[in-house]
């Protein structure tokens, strides 16, 4: 029973990290339809920005979050303006272009900062555990879980309750007609891409105290993020959240029942089966395109 509870928390913690990484992608890929293979590198940039802010300006991980968001969003905005914007009508070319961008970002960090793993100190006030009976929960992981939920809510409000969200949804449904009504589709897309990149940056900042900060850290994460978005269903934020929770918990269960290696294989096999029977994911959005 203790193991089950602890493992459920571990699954929740994994889910929150998956969610926070996948949210940015859910927006860029799920709503704009851009297959952004550089997403993992945005996460990596977030981690390195946090490292730089901590090393050179003495900021803690949590205080650095807004700055990291702005910095990585700015990088995303520039990349959208310079490259991605020209490729909206050529979705296959965006794959190649963003993959290339990813490699460039990775090498730039390797050349500029160095290839070795960087150390980022976790926040002191979040160290320690909360223990309820046999259930032991790391404070920092609880913080990541709550923060990812908060970001989910903010993003959902932004998409459904603001004028910007309404414009974005209009552009997604029909770009031509939206432009006739005076919506600047280009600008909407730029801001959305930047927002998605910024979220990836926040994800990077939040995982640095737990993981190893290296230039290639994003490569594996982008795979996880795509899995979550595809399982959740394109264009659905709640689907992304549900998929993150599902994959996190299932991974946790498999890794305790079997082990981490086979658990990973079992999860991937499960996803293949799921896609076979629900090709559009768990919660496909009903937007006509």
């Amino acid at each position: 029973m203790d193991v089950v509870l602890n493992q459920a928390f571990a699954g929740l913690s994994m889910a929150s990290i998956l969610l926070i990484i996948a949210l940015g992608l859910a927006i860029i890929y799920g709503t704009m339809g851009v297959i952004n293979l550089a997403h993992g590198e945005f996460v990596m940039l977030g981690a390195y920005t946090t490292w730089a802010l901590q090393n050179h300006a003495g900021l803690g991980v949590v205080t650095a979050l807004p700055l990291v968001f702005v910095a990585v969003a700015a990088v995303g905005w520039i990349i959208e303006k310079v490259i991605v914007q020209r490729l909206y009508t050529r979705p296959l070319d965006t794959i190649l272009a963003t993959w290339g961008i990813g490699i460039i970002l990775q090498q730039a960090v390797r050349l500029g900062v160095g290839a070795e793993s960087r150390f980022v100190r976790g926040p002191q006030w979040l160290s320690g555990n909360i223990e309820i009976g046999a259930l032991v929960m790391s404070n920092y992981r609880i913080f990541v879980i709550s923060f990812s939920l908060a970001i989910l809510v903010v993003t959902w409000l932004l998409m459904t309750r603001t004028e910007f969200g309404m414009k974005l949804r209009a552009v997604i449904q029909n770009r031509g007609i939206s432009e006739c009504y005076g919506i600047e589709a280009k600008k909407v897309y730029s801001v959305t891409f930047a927002y998605g990149a910024g979220l990836a940056g926040i994800a990077g900042a939040l995982i640095t105290p737990l993981f190893s900060t290296i230039p290639t850290m994003g490569t594996g994460l982008v795979v996880d993020a795509f899995l979550v978005v595809i399982v959740g269903g394109l264009g659905s934020l709640m689907g992304t959240a549900a998929a993150a929770l599902l994959i996190g918990e299932v991974t946790a269960i498999f890794s305790i029942v079997i082990n981490d290696t086979l658990g990973r294989i079992a999860v991937l096999a499960g996803i293949i089966l799921l896609i076979r029977f629900r090709p559009r994911g768990l919660f496909p959005s009903d937007i006509r395109r």
Binding site: S13, V136, G220, I256, T261, G263
Partner: peptide, 20 residues
């Protein structure tokens, strides 16, 4: 005795098992 894939980075399950 357990083995995780190369580059594996989330050890929450392993740590739970160690606790148990």
């Amino acid at each position: 005795e357990e083995y995780v894939p190369m580059g594996h980075s989330d050890f929450s399950s392993v740590i739970n098992r160690i606790r148990a």
